[in-house]
């Protein structure tokens, strides 16, 4: 566990760097044709974003665990 933290650092930094433009975009206010602005500001679009993120994270987690189980099984069969 101690060793996994430094390994994760580039991943976290990459994620942070990728999210920066989103923060900038969130700070900008615009007014033009009909778009889902209200949803974005006061509405509940963030709820949807959170839901999609959780669904995706869940599926990816499942894939990762499947991958790991497969690796373990591969090792077992090799022996």
């Amino acid at each position: 566990m101690k060793n996994s933290l430094p390994k994760l650092r580039p991943v976290l930094l990459l994620l942070l760097g990728l999210v920066l433009p989103v923060l900038r975009a969130a700070a900008q206010a615009t007014s033009e044709p009909e778009m889902a602005d209200t949803l974005r500001h006061d509405g509940k679009i963030y709820v949807v974003v959170a839901v999609i993120t959780v669904v995706l994270a869940g599926l990816l987690f499942f894939l990762i665990s499947l991958d790991r189980k497969l690796s373990r099984l591969e090792k077992e069969v090799k022996e």
Partner: peptide, 9 residues
Amino acid sequence: LYVAVAGLL
């Protein structure tokens, strides 16, 4: 995960 968030926002 980035695409899911940034793609919507």
